[in-house]
Nucleic acid binder design. Sequence first.
RNA 1: GCGGGUGUAGCUCAGUGGUAGAGCGCCACGUUGCCAACGUGGCUGUCGUGGGUUCGAGCCCCAUCACCCGCUCCA
Length: 555
Amino acid sequence: MDMDKLVALCKRRGFIFQSSEIYGGINGFWDYGPLGVELKKNIKDAWWHDMVRNPPPGPDGQEIEMVGVDCAIIMNPKVWEASGHVGTFADPMRKCPQCGHFVRADQLWEALTLCTWMNSLIQEFTPISGAIDSPRLMKWAQGKGKRLAPNLALVRNPHVVLSFLATRVNGQPDAPPDLMEMTRYFATEQLHATGLQEPCPQCGGPLGEAKPFTLMLESHTGTEKTEASKVYLRPETAQGIFVNFKNVLDSTRLRLPFGIAQTGKAFRNEITPRNYTFRSREFEQMEIEFFCHPDESMKWFEYWREVRKSWYTKLGIKSDKLRPRDQGEKELAHYSKACTDIEYMFPFSDEPQELEGVAHRGDYDLAQHMKHSGKDLSYFEEELWAKADKSAYGGDKKKEQEAKSKLPFRYVPHVIEPSAGADRFTLAVLCEAYTEDTAPDEKGAPQERIVMKFHPRLAPIKAAILPLVNKEGMPEIAHKLYRELKQDYNVFFDDGGAIGRRYRRQDEIGTPWCFTIDGQTLADQTVTIRDRDTLKQERMPIAQVANELKRRLQP
RNA sequence: GCGGGUGUAGCUCAGUGGUAGAGCGCCACGUUGCCAACGUGGCUGUCGUGGGUUCGAGCCCCAUCACCCGCUCCA
């Protein structure tokens, strides 16, 4: 499938527009048009219905408790300190002017010890003794170095660099240079002009100054625009759930395990927004935080991984394009026990791209918020305590208190986090639906047809109501049916042009069914229902249309 | 952020420094008898934006914005 054709269709038919287009657009932001908003809304509604209102039975066949919240986009900035976003997002970054590579300033040396050219170079000398084998380094610079680190000073100008290094070593023989200092010398071409420099792990070029770099978008509240008034647009909806965990617990009588769900906008200052709406700076998430007992968390992780994967399949994503991928141990965050990315083969990439991450986050988030807010976010098993044999404590209140303060009675819940991208799934649905096939024209000759094969639940328009011709009362009957159906569904009335053209127009926007009022309707009150994918038509009584539509749209 | 490419009607795209075009679509009227019909008429443009060169710029130059591809980044 050609991505350009999909992008053109989305614009032509009103699914997706570039944001602020008449002003030249803005990088990384997109608007949904009349059809796009219906599609995305259907996706969010399907998610809410299938995950919050009516989630599949649990691993042991039990009912799943789910509730929702809708939190503010702007929160107390301390939330983002606790979550780690300020720390990791605001790390000073250093950029290589030669190749454009970014590296976190505090991770430079770690990156250097892991990088290819450094590992190659390190075999050519013995930094601990400080001994330098100039001819050997020269050979490296003129051989392997040229390929591995083309912008390293040692490679670009080995004579000068080696002479600086020799001066350094000879000048202070009792202080042999360590690995870091040696490396700085290797990266420095004009010692007197620039001082010692540090090399890029990618190409060896001299790195620039460290600059703070944050992926969170910032704003200010109140009248003063100061550091103290700075606030962040949330980079994920999850934290709103965590900070409201206690509120939900206290206001609902819910007992563990249960989940809290939220859909909403999130913002990230992506360096390179790319691939249509896939990586946008403003996007919408559909997130669940499922709170459970630490001993049961893996069971719930597996439950959600399966539930989320099959949800996509159920809504029409072919299973061979859907790739659940378990993250390796190295890839996992330090607090995480497991994480599965549910990925989709988008047409714009040879690699599957992430639609959703199902993460086992342990007690990391709640523990962080306990630490930073000073509030107790632990959970107490009241029923378990009520039934417990307390004879061991002999009525000693202190012993009882101590027992109540730890497992199995009190603990910080573990969390399973299925975090899905609403816009990413919308894009996947569009890609998946786009189909070019052939359909016969009025002479029976095959003609090219573009059809969006949306799952009926997701289709922006559920049905079109069409009078075959505009006479003999057909438009009136059609309009009456239209009025009836639009009470419950987004349906479309069209009496313009020939019937074939009207069918094709509906195909292109993925309307699953067309109801046509024809001459026979006048005689026996039946209409035809025409199927988008098969082009087949059946007759049914006009009085049964609403029920039939309801039946076909059942989740 | 770097390198390469693109930007002309709603869409797809022609356009050689000298009057801005085509196809499709869209709208109106007539027609219509189940899969992109036909006839007649009509609308549609700051040629991405801002400068410059020139008697004259869609075309040449500079800058800028957006999109695409490749690097890079992606807690």
